[in-house]
């Protein structure tokens, strides 16, 4: 992947958030478990929030980026990915979301590594951190709800 400007990178990232949004909307329309549809609609809504944040960055306001270290609980790292299916339950929904955020994070880490421009690298790292934050949100929920007794 080749990017020429910060603008381009941000557009790419914004596009990714939109993709995620569309994907969650799609799953929401398919799941049967009561209440899970709402969960996915909320996830889609969250992606819109992320998109808005990136647009802010594009407009020159960097304050939207996650500051400081973001914790990585690494819960999803050793769990098996799931494919969305209509009979999904809450555990699977969380697994799916954690994995999706993990993938987005990994992508930006790769991009940061691949670029030689220090300015761009910083931006990619910032984006990776953003995704990590999203993952932490789901991992925390997983740790609290699914792994309450473990």
């Amino acid at each position: 992947m080749q990017f020429d400007s910060i603008e381009e990178i941000l557009d790419f990232a914004i596009g990714k958030e939109m993709e995620a949004h569309d994907m969650y909307m799609d799953i929401a329309g398919k799941v049967k478990r009561p209440g899970l549809e709402k969960t996915f609609l909320e996830l889609a809504q969250m992606e819109l929030g992320h998109k808005a944040r990136l647009e802010q960055v594009k407009a020159g306001d960097l304050s939207g980026f996650a500051a400081g270290e973001v914790q990585n609980l690494k819960i999803s790292d050793h769990l098996v990915d799931v494919k969305p299916h209509p009979n999904m339950d809450y555990q699977e929904a969380l697994l799916f979301a954690m994995k999706a955020e993990q993938r987005a994070h990994d992508l930006y880490v790769d991009l940061a590594r691949a670029t030689s421009d220090p300015g761009l690298r910083e931006l990619f790292k910032g984006l990776a951190k953003e995704e990590l934050k999203h993952k932490l949100f789901f991992e925390t929920e997983y740790d609290d709800v699914i792994l309450e007794g473990n």
Binding site: G35, I146, N150
Partner: peptide, 25 residues
């Protein structure tokens, strides 16, 4: 495996289930 358990509402008619339960069960 004994990490926990959740409710299963597959026995209810879906429209009723929708009214009474949330995503976590």
């Amino acid at each position: 495996v004994a990490i926990g358990q959740s409710a299963d509402h597959s026995w209810m008619p879906p429209d009723i289930a929708e009214k009474v339960a949330d995503a976590k069960g």
